[in-house]
Design a protein around this nucleic acid. Structure first.
Length: 687
RNA sequence: GCCGCCUUAGCUCAGUCGGUCAGAGCGACGCACUCGUAAUGCGUAGGUCAGGGGUUCGACUCCCCUAGGCGGCUCCA
């Protein structure tokens, strides 16, 4: 399936004379006022979105914002959120309003209600919303005369009052991003019915569509709890999520996209293709990989291993548990004890009176590999000639993720990191970062991910270790490496780990969703903590800089992402079964056996389906199992010493000479072709 | 961790009001069928209704606890 967002419209510029509404000017200019291209708001020359009812004081040129643009959709979604809130307060008069912003693909609105909403409530609310939209309401902006006016009007809305107070209270809190109050004057949007009566209103900075007829397609999707203002110590409100679009067609396309995402869910595919499971007996977030998943995992790892060897990495191993002192030295216990499994207290001895004879000690499951690698570095004196020293480990780590966050393979409690630590001298840092980033992107591409952007996570002022100067240098080096890649770089202030800033590589999958993949972190802190040194050319002792980097991040997670990216139809080189042989009738089996012996001897993972299902049934079975190559043979094939191919997409290539078929298959797998084979592309291989 | 929902055969799911409701399809197994590109037919076996406690004459059904899952929130070295 391919979902391509509608092309961004060429924006129309419109001159709005002083004293005229933007809407009138837009209409004068002959721009659409209905349908998916209807103009819903305008953007002024300061980049601010304005209602169509907005009247500039002097003649101003504005850009018309159409419904089918991202900005236009946000306005539609926000206005739909208002209609939702109106419906909620009609059906649940005791409901107090939280906030209701547009979000990616939709909107939400938070409410404080006596009891949580049920799915039936959602249906009733959606029905009421449709009535409200159909009844035809205007959205009208109104300025509060003063803060006190606002407080008086909002006396029964405690959360809105809090927002007003926040805004007026001090400069400590930046409210410019808060939809309700913004950073300008305080305004309310009234919903006016067709008789001109004000039937509802909400504190809001706007802008809004002028009229509910600009809200042609929406759907309430789910309810959930959410902490007021995102703070765990605050009361939980009931959040209703919805989606809204400029047309029925756009809404349907979005719902189809959601359905496709559900079909691709790695948890579903993992069960369907017998790849992995989460036995209840083992524990939450602790996957086991079945033979077919094991093959994919091994292929992923083996290729990575090969590439790392070629790139000068050395492989190390470290145990899964350690005495607590190691994580005290590294600082992990100080920062992350909550996220670690609790210690095992071992070796304690008491005498017959119960008095402590030997204190014993705490062992922890490791949540990170890096402290171990520091010990390997420190195990003997290091020379500048050894740098950069690149240590790599597929290291299993365990993190006590909170029960509510564990999710399939993407958030687990036990995982294997492809973890590398590079120790280098200051003058090597820049080159090393640059080549590292190139290496990482290159390898991700080999697994079939093509579309990337980078994120630069900088210091969390509440949670860091090391000096300002170290952080500055580390951050600058990373930024320079990131910028030289030519990829888009998105800032992530405060997103760094305590020991250093990081670049993360975000990859988009086939559905356009972004996943955090590789991370690269520069660390001056841990070399200090572990007192790591090398001897420089002049005989002096120097401190190396450490680079942390994971490419898959966690193999489990990467596995999950690839599963969804390929919808389970893995490239042939990763497929657990690369080709299945299907005889037309039993008498054709010996011929296929010969062919499959050849394929097997060339290192392909192949199976011959000699079961007594009908041939059509076998094709169906192996199609649902997403086997890339089905190799059939009937009378005509036997006669011509040939086989016939059927591919995942249903296309076929008949009577291909055996030798040619085997060579093409082998070559396809060996060169790690990521495309799904079809008559077209595999036919080209044969030619 | 918090809020809500969910858990019936290996899988996907029916099961009304507390009272012949232990059911289907797929899968597995057996028999027959030997077939040219997505489901051959017939038969057999499989369940302490997630686990524990309670209410009741009687619990898959109602209540409580625990485990696991789902959707969010918070968190994510």
């Amino acid at each position: 399936m391919s979902v391509s967002p509608p092309q961004a419209q060429q924006e129309s510029r419109v001159k709005v004379p002083a004293g005229t509404t933007a809407g009138d000017a837009v209409q004068q200019a002959g721009l659409p006022s209905k349908g998916p291209e209807a103009v819903v708001v305008v953007r002024d020359d300061e980049g601010q979105l304005r209602d169509l009812a907005w009247v500039p004081e002097t003649e101003t040129e504005v850009a018309a914002v159409a419904a089918d643009t991202e900005e236009g959709r946000s306005v539609i979604r926000h206005s739909t959120a208002h209609v939702l809130a109106q419906a909620v307060q009609q059906l649940f008069p005791e409901a107090k309003l939280g906030v209701g912003p547009p979000v990616k693909d939709g909107f939400y609105y938070d409410f404080d209600v006596d009891r949580p909403f049920t799915p039936e409530d959602l249906q009733a609310l959606e029905k009421r919303m449709k009535q409200l939209v159909k009844s035809g309401q205007k959205f009208r902006r109104r300025e509060y005369g003063s803060l006190d006016d606002a407080r008086a009007e909002l006396a029964s809305e405690p959360y809105k009052l809090e927002l007003v107070d926040l805004k007026s209270g001090s400069d400590e809190v930046d409210t410019s991003e808060v939809m309700e109050v913004g950073d300008g004057e305080l305004t309310v949007y009234d919903n006016i019915d067709r008789h001109g009566e004000t039937v509802w209103g909400d504190l809001c900075r706007g802008p809004h569509v002028p009229h509910t007829r600009f809200l042609p397609a929406f759907k309430l999707t789910r309810v959930a709890a959410a902490y007021w203002r995102g703070d765990q110590s605050n009361r939980q409100l009931q959040r209703i999520y919805g989606t809204a679009w400029e047309s029925k067609e756009a809404l349907d396309a979005h719902l189809e996209w959601l359905a496709e995402a559900e079909r691709r869910d790695h948890r579903r595919i993992g069960a369907e293709l017998d790849l992995f499971s989460f036995p209840e007996e083992v524990g939450s977030g602790l996957p086991v990989f079945h033979p077919k998943g094991g093959i994919i995992r091994r292929e992923l790892e083996d290729y990575s291993r090969r590439r790392h060897e070629q790139a000068g990495y050395q492989f190390v191993n470290s145990p899964h548990i350690t005495k607590s002192a190691l994580f005290e030295t590294s600082g992990h216990l100080g920062w992350y004890a909550d996220g670690m499994f609790p210690p095992m207290h071992l070796d304690e001895e008491r005498d017959e009176n119960g008095e402590l004879r030997k204190p014993g000690q705490d062992y922890y499951l490791k949540p990170m590999n890096c402290p171990f690698h520091n010990l390997i570095y420190r195990s003997r004196g290091r020379s500048y000639r050894e740098l950069p020293l690149r240590l790599f480990e597929f290291g299993s780590v365990y993190r006590y993720e909170k029960s509510g966050v564990v999710h399939g393979l993407t958030r687990v409690r036990g995982m294997t990191q492809d973890d590398a630590h590079i120790y280098c001298s200051p003058d090597q840092l820049q080159d090393e970062l640059k080549s590292l980033l190139g290496f990482v992107l290159d390898l991700l591409r080999d697994y079939g991910l093509e579309d990337f952007y980078l994120e630069l996570s900088t210091r969390n002022e509440e949670k860091y270790s090391g000096t300002d100067e170290q952080w500055q240098r580390a951050t600058d080096s990373l930024r320079e490496a990131a910028e030289s890649s030519g990829l888009e770089l998105v800032p992530d202030p405060g997103g760094a780990a305590f020991y250093g800033p990081k670049i993360s590589v975000q990859a988009k999958d086939a559905l356009g969703r972004s996943w955090q993949m590789s991370t690269i972190q520069v660390d001056y802190d841990l070399p200090e903590r572990f007192d790591l040194e090398y001897t420089a050319a002049d005989g002096s002792k120097r401190r190396p800089i450490k680079i942390h980097r994971a490419l898959f991040g966690s193999i489990e997670r990467f596995f999950g992402v690839l599963t969804e990216h390929y919808a389970g139809a893995f490239p042939a080189w990763l497929s657990p079964v690369q080709a299945v042989g299907i005889p037309i009738a039993d008498e054709h089996l010996p011929h296929l056996e010969r062919v499959f012996d050849t394929l097997r001897s060339r290192g392909l993972r192949v199976e011959l389906d000699s079961g007594d299902d009908r041939m059509q049934k076998k094709i169906r079975n192996h199609t649902t199992q997403k086997v890339p190559f089905m190799v059939l043979a009937g009378g005509k094939d036997v006669e011509a010493d040939a086989v016939s191919f059927r591919f995942r997409d249903g296309s076929q290539l008949n009577e291909v000479p055996v030798e040619q078929a085997a060579a093409a298959l082998t070559h396809w797998v060996q060169r790690r072709e990521n495309a799904s084979p079809s008559a077209e592309n595999f036919g080209a291989e044969l030619a």
